[in-house]
Amino acid sequence: MNGALLVAAGAAVGAPLRYLTDRAVRARRDPLLPWGTFAANLLGSAVLGLVTGAVQAHGASPQLQLLVGTGFCGALTTYSTFSYETLRLAESGARRWAAVNVAGSLTAGLAAVYAGWGLAGLIG
């Protein structure tokens, strides 16, 4: 299947899932920290680690990388909203929370990639 079509199919699911995740989290939590974006970035990083580990280290189809990696995970996660929400926190005087958001998102995202990659090793 054509690469661009695989990316489109993945992104058409990933982007709305980020929107729904953000809305569901906002409805439940006090929105001091942007937990919705945090959750989407965490989930997308874990899945990307899993898929890339499966493709590169365990021989899964490279088409899976385009569909799930570039398309789904790329659209599920976002750097632009993460940066904008961090800026909003800093502007509102919550500079410490802005720093917490950055440090927490980075640590969690990186840990999620490692966890996903490790899981690919256990399955494959």
């Binding site: 982007a15 980020r18 997308g44 790329g74 976002t78 909203t81 980075l106 990639v113």
Partner: peptide, 23 residues
């Protein structure tokens, strides 16, 4: 806003690839 901010820009930028690049 949902089309351009959440959709286009959210789909364009990526946090997961950033973390994978670091890995």
């Amino acid at each position: 806003r949902p089309f351009f901010g959440t959709g286009v820009l959210g789909g364009f930028t990526t946090f997961s690839t950033y973390c994978l690049d670091l890995h």
